[in-house]
């Protein structure tokens, strides 16, 4: 039997440990993510959604429990070293890109995610055909702005770029942290559809946090509900189909 891509084993996360402000955020969470799974995650504020991602990406250490990636224990692996296997898109478009570097430079950085950066000329121009093709897939004019610093891009273009940077080198696991939440409804819907296309086309394994219940039902093959640091429910694709937004709202309370 093959190992799950990602396995969380009885994860508990505490902040301010040992002080009187100690707070337990994730409580005894266990989860197996298999290859090709696309899990949408919902939960109220403070339910631990972002902490879950922080723990998986290595931004935050677990207090108790183990994390396995492809069967390998990565619990104590630093964030920089986990980047070899996983990539993440943040909610804030500013977090995912280097503002003074151009779109093409950002893409090249991401193409070498997790690799040793050598002392050889980067030969950026050689990558342009690949970058043009990739950016065209987002249908938002990004392909015409490859030489523009990312700080001058619109929020939608910048977030589309963050997403492309996360998938340009296929990650074992893709974390999408409400990546369309900061965008206007139309741009958000476009990026969401494109995200879905790219995930199914690339057979990516992905976890996606969202606040939009419609999106949580529409996309992905599993739906996970977090509540007060615990996994409250997991729905499979067939169960998801039968759910309505109203019913889902009740699960959140």
């Amino acid at each position: 039997m093959t190992n799950p891509v990602l396995e969380l084993k009885e994860i508990t996360t505490k902040v301010n440990q040992g002080t009187n402000r100690e707070l337990t955020i994730l409580k005894n969470i266990s989860l197996k993510v298999n290859k090709g799974d696309y899990i949408t995650i919902i939960g109220t504020n403070g339910s631990g959604k972002s902490t879950l991602f922080n723990v998986i990406s290595g931004l935050m250490q677990v207090s108790v429990g183990k994390i396995y990636l492809n069967g390998k224990d990565i619990t104590n692996l630093k964030e920089e070293n986990r980047s070899k296997f996983l990539s993440r898109v943040f909610q804030d478009p500013k977090l995912g890109t280097a503002p003074r570097m151009t779109v093409a430079e950002n893409l090249l950085l991401a193409l070498k995610r997790g690799e040793k950066r050598n002392f050889l000329p980067r030969n950026l121009k050689n990558y342009f055909p690949q970058f043009i093709q990739l950016t065209k897939s987002m249908h938002n004019g990004l392909e015409n702005r490859l030489n523009a610093p990312t700080e001058v891009l619109s929020g939608g273009q910048r977030q589309a770029l963050s997403f492309l940077m996360a998938i340009i080198k296929k990650p074992d696991i893709l974390l999408l942290d409400e990546h369309t939440a900061a965008l206007d409804p139309k741009t958000s819907a476009t990026l969401m559809n494109e995200t879905d296309n790219q995930i199914s086309r690339g057979h990516l394994t992905a976890l996606m946090i969202t606040h939009k219940l419609e999106d949580a039902l529409k996309f992905g093959n599993y739906l996970l509900i977090l509540n007060q640091g615990k996994i409250k429910f997991i729905f499979g694709k067939e169960e998801k189909k039968r759910l309505t937004v109203n019913e889902l709202e009740k699960f959140l309370i």
Binding site: S57, E79, K94, L95, A98, R117, F119, L120, R122
Partner: peptide, 19 residues
């Protein structure tokens, strides 16, 4: 170089660079 670009990225957005 690829190394130099990583250096620039470190100053430009350290969180992204780490990720």
């Amino acid at each position: 170089t690829n190394f130099g670009q990583a250096f620039i990225a470190t100053g430009d957005n350290p969180q992204m660079a780490k990720s």
